[in-house]
């Protein structure tokens, strides 16, 4: 049982860092530009599709990954320039509407370009296979690699935001946008940069999960809602909050699915426990979010309740 617990903790953490990569961009865009981007999830999906195409073209995982990241950066800049730039000054409602529309456009576009059948990306030889943990338990190397890469990205972001001048501007922008622009910073360029960076992170997340999940048109949606849950739990605009929120959501979701029925079985009959466990497990994340918002209306690390 403890072995299983450890394994699930790893799984939860792995889902968590993946969510963090997506949520980091979302929370920055949200916090700094006060912009609701429902289309952030599809960037994750586009990243996976671009990765699949490059992998097919080049035949190499590493080359494909190396091409996908700058491609997503350019994709983000392009989107920012064509659509998002015009939306910063609009109300939240207009942003919801436009980005909802964009979700439809990009999802259908992907379907037209790549077809609706799921694609796959071969796993790099270096990272395939599994390593033994304790006893008979094994864990896929690739998932460990995702965990490591995710944690490294989080650390890098932390350094970027707390130690560099750009990070200082970002922090300043999140708390007082007008002041930053009054101080003579080119806010337009700062926004474009943040946006492209967020798109790149989401695309990167999509690219690295491509070998373990099949690439399909529905993958952006489920992740988008979870990413929103993450940033709301963590407090909008806070990278630290996004990180804690992502780990919390990843672990709670994974643990709930596997241990919910086991725990319930201790207090009720197995059939009812199984049924209740299946009912509760998918609700758990949302119950957690509602509870946190009830106690702290601006999330765990949120600064203000507006």
């Amino acid at each position: 049982m403890t072995n299983l617990f450890l394994l699930q903790l790893l799984n939860g953490a792995q889902l968590g860092v993946l969510l963090f990569l997506i949520a980091a961009g979302l929370t920055l865009i949200f916090g700094i530009m006060d912009f609701i981007n429902l289309a952030h999830g599809v960037l994750y999906m586009v990243g996976a599709y671009v990765m699949a195409s490059f992998a097919m073209l080049t035949g190499s995982f590493w080359l494909a990954l190396g091409l996908t990241v700058p491609a997503m950066l350019i994709c983000g800049l392009l989107l920012e320039f064509t659509v998002f730039r015009a939306l910063y000054a609009r109300s939240h409602l207009d942003q919801v509407l436009a980005t909802f529309g964009l979700v439809l456009v990009i999802s259908e576009g992907v379907k037209i370009l790549w077809g609706s059948a799921p694609l796959t990306v071969p796993m790099p030889d270096l990272l395939s296979g599994s390593v033994g943990l304790i006893g008979p338990l094994k864990y896929p190397v690739y998932r460990l690699a995702i965990l490591v890469v995710g944690l490294a990205s989080a650390l890098g972001l932390y350094v970027l935001i707390t130690q560099t001048r750009i990070g200082m501007l970002l922090r300043a922008g999140a708390s007082n946008r007008e002041m930053v622009s009054a101080l003579g910073v080119n806010v337009g360029r700062l926004f474009a940069m943040v946006f492209a960076f967020g798109a790149m992170l989401a695309g990167f997340a999509g690219a690295i999960v491509a070998p373990i999940l099949s690439v399909d048109t529905g993958m952006g949606e489920s992740v988008l809602i979870l990413a929103f849950v993450v940033i709301v739990i963590g407090g909008i605009g806070s990278i630290r909050g996004a990180f804690m929120g992502a780990l919390l959501v990843g672990v709670v979701d994974t643990m709930g699915r596997s241990f919910g029925p086991i725990v319930l079985r201790m207090i009720m009959e197995p059939a009812a426990a199984g049924q209740l466990g299946r009912t509760l497990a998918p609700m758990l994340v949302y119950i957690l979010m509602a509870a946190i918002l009830f106690a702290r209306p601006a999330g765990l690390f949120g600064r203000r309740a507006e």
Binding site: N3, L4, Q8, I212, T254
Partner: peptide, 19 residues
């Protein structure tokens, strides 16, 4: 084990199988 229809990441279930 019953998983949600459309679930794509089976890591939690595979861990159970391994255990």
């Amino acid at each position: 084990v019953f998983t949600p229809l459309g679930q794509l990441d089976f890591s939690a279930e595979l861990a159970q199988i391994a255990a």
